[in-house]
Design a protein around this nucleic acid. Structure first.
Lengths: 131, 131
DNA sequence: CCTTGCCTTCACACTGATGTGAGGGTTCGA
DNA sequence: TCGAACCCTCACATCAGTGTGAAGGCAAGG
């Protein structure tokens, strides 16, 4: 598909799709006339990128981990390409993501606890249902 | 304590401590000569702010939730001050934080799965936060 | 053919978070 | 009293992520 369709299907402005390409997050083919041409998986990739950006990761970090974030099943990068160094980097990235998760979860819990304490009637956070 | 000590104790440059004040995240007193004067809880507050910023929240959102993120026990804002509107806003913030957590956890799992598949010897992730 | 709507690149500009430095006052110890 | 080490404000600079518009090529339909 061309950039316009990808934009419509993902809700991401074409400007950003071009930006993500410039940042080496997307690698569309080009048609004869120079138009960007995206395959079907690009839709998922774009959503992936958006989610990660919204979660506070930089394009640099996303670029680092994106190759390993294929679909739920397929693995894009073969084991041969994974040097111990890369594995270590990846491991570090996972740790950083985990640190973010921990921080967010901690604060979510605090907020939920506060809300629950002050308004017992209000939905008491995500984990359990009590009402 | 003065800004320099707070900076040393938190590892956050004074520039940022002033910026956070400008953003209404910190509210130090002033001594006679105009120096900022921080109380002991400022240390925790600053660490809180840093963690949340690193996790991708904006100062605006942090400003919104910070009053409700007091220590593990104490509750700073009394129930009387919590209008239903505020509660709803807070609830929305919790949801947004949750969305970030979900996105990060999903991708952490993907990365871990990849790493585990390719290098079974490597630490097989930390499947802790799921909610 | 001409308009309309895609697409291209280029480029300036803004916001949020942060770095850095200038210019100047205060405190304190040698 | 001097210098070092603080503190202040102001302001410009940077980086990432975006918005926006100009200037132009390509394609399909009246």
């Amino acid at each position: 598909m061309k950039i316009g369709e990808l934009s419509r299907r993902t809700g991401v402005p074409t400007r950003l799709l071009r930006y993500y390409e410039e940042q080496n997050l997307l690698h569309p083919d080009r048609t004869e006339n120079g138009y960007r041409f995206y395959g079907e998986p690009a839709v998922r990739d774009v959503q992936q990128i958006r989610g990660l950006l919204d979660s506070g990761l930089t394009t640099e970090m996303i670029r680092a981990i994106l190759p390993y974030l294929s679909g739920p099943d397929e693995i894009h990068v073969p084991a041969e390409c994974l040097t111990p160094e890369t594995a270590a980097l990846l491991s570090g990235h996972i740790d950083r993501i985990q640190a973010r998760i921990d921080c967010l979860a901690r604060n979510r819990d605090r907020l939920s606890a506060y809300l629950a304490a002050v308004r017992p009637s209000v939905r008491p956070a995500v984990p359990s249902e009590g009402a």
